[in-house]
Design a binder for these strands. Structure first.
Ligand SMILES: [Zn+2]
Length: 366
DNA sequence: CGTATTTGACCGGCGC
DNA sequence: GCGCCGGTCAAATACG
């Protein structure tokens, strides 16, 4: 029977159609072409961060999955603090699904298969914010402010530890755990679990509909950290691994810490993770930059894309960048030695791609 | 022995 | 109300 269809889930970003992309450009590019109303914004971004003119998968993770930062960095008119609309997605499930079926859609993400032989891996990532709960029961703006990412994190963390009776019991269930925006990364890699510097505990695995590959669910092992991630292999391109992150870490990246690199990052010194997160607010980008340079990365190329959907304006803005990723330590003792070479993908149109991370001579692995 | 993973059961949301 | 489904829990197991 057919398959793709009743899954208007926001997950469809993964339904991307390689073919489409292969063609020449990413679907969303076309789609969001006009959406990128601030091309200069991008430029600004670049110039603003000469050092780290890119944002990598790991960066996002480490630096902080700050949606604000992300959105800012990526695109968005972002001038406003409420860049990311809390929700999107399923509202037009139909549209999306149709689009997905067609192979196009704001959600569609593609991997550029343009990687040359020398390019071991390339990946794409996309982020989607979704509100959780019941779709749209809230209007667009309004509490988006309240649910500030950082705040949310703190709040969530605290709440989590506080009670959380079990599921289904009773009491305060009014607050369904809203799921935070998710950032998906498509990475071309043979190994599924990409090392990102954090420790993850696997808590589930489910078969993916229409796909022979299962989806694994991971949770950050750091206490109080509710960040989750799921990993699955693309059905269309087995060589591509889709990693979706949800939430922001309220602590420093362990890998970075143990790095011999001296980090005076604020967060690092903070004995209290919570505090860190709090302070993150202000120094988020600082950290971001910082981490960016110290991330242990092997040589996987990664492309990141972000797409925002405005309910009101179903216009999606997307940007992408790519960076190096870390290859996990395979069970095999010897993994192909990775050489640090920065790869550059060519993006049509707005070529938001930036070269990432100068090669890193030493890599530290957890 | 402590911890991470495996894996089927379970839950809540949603479509019909 | 029922069944499908994605997501999560947690007991059992594997690992070191
Ligand atoms: Zn964490």
């Amino acid at each position: 029977m057919s398959n793709e269809k009743k899954n208007p889930y926001q997950y469809d970003p993964f339904d991307y159609n390689p073919h489409e992309i292969n063609r020449s450009s990413f679907p969303f590019f076309n789609y969001g072409t006009h959406s990128i109303q601030d091309p200069q914004n991008l430029h600004g971004f670049e110039s603003d961060h000469p050092n780290s003119s890119f944002m990598s998968f790991t960066d996002c993770l480490h630096g902080s999955m700050d949606y604000n930062t992300l959105s800012k960095a990526f695109d968005m008119s972002c001038s406003s603090s409420e860049v990311i609309s809390p929700q999107l997605d399923h509202e037009n499930s139909k549209n999306q699904q149709a689009a997905a079926a067609a192979g196009v859609g704001d959600h569609s993400v593609g991997t550029s298969t343009t990687e040359n032989p020398s390019t071991p891996n390339s990946s794409v990532s996309s982020s989607s914010n979704e509100a959780a709960g019941s779709h749209e029961h809230e209007d667009s703006e309004k509490k988006k402010k309240e649910k500030q990412p950082k705040v949310a994190v703190c709040d969530e963390a605290a709440g989590d530890e506080e009670d959380k009776s079990k599921k289904g019991s009773k009491a305060k269930k009014k607050e369904k755990r809203q799921r935070e925006p998710r950032f998906a990364f498509l990475t071309k890699s043979e190994v599924d679990h990409l090392e990102d510097g954090y420790r993850w505990r696997k808590y589930g695995q489910k078969a993916v509909k229409n796909s022979p590959y299962p989806r694994s669910y991971y949770r950050c092992t750091t206490q109080k950290c509710v960040v989750k991630k799921r990993v699955e292999r693309s059905f269309q391109d087995p060589s591509i691994v889709i990693t979706t992150y949800e939430g922001q870490h309220n602590h420093q990246c362990p890998a970075t810490l143990r790095g011999n690199l001296n980090l005076n990052a604020v967060g690092m010194l903070s004995p209290n993770p919570l505090l860190t997160s709090a302070s993150l607010n202000g120094s988020a980008r600082f950290q971001h930059e910082f981490l960016t340079q110290f991330l242990p990365m092997n040589n996987q190329l990664q492309l990141q894309l972000q797409s925002h959907h405005h309910q009101d304006d179903h216009q999606a803005s997307n940007s992408m960048i790519y960076s190096n990723l870390v290859a996990p330590h395979p069970h095999h003792h010897h993994q192909q030695h990775q050489r640090q070479q920065r790869q550059q993908l060519h993006v049509p149109d707005y070529g938001l791609l930036q070269d990432l991370v100068p090669s890193f001579g030493h890599k530290q692995e957890p």
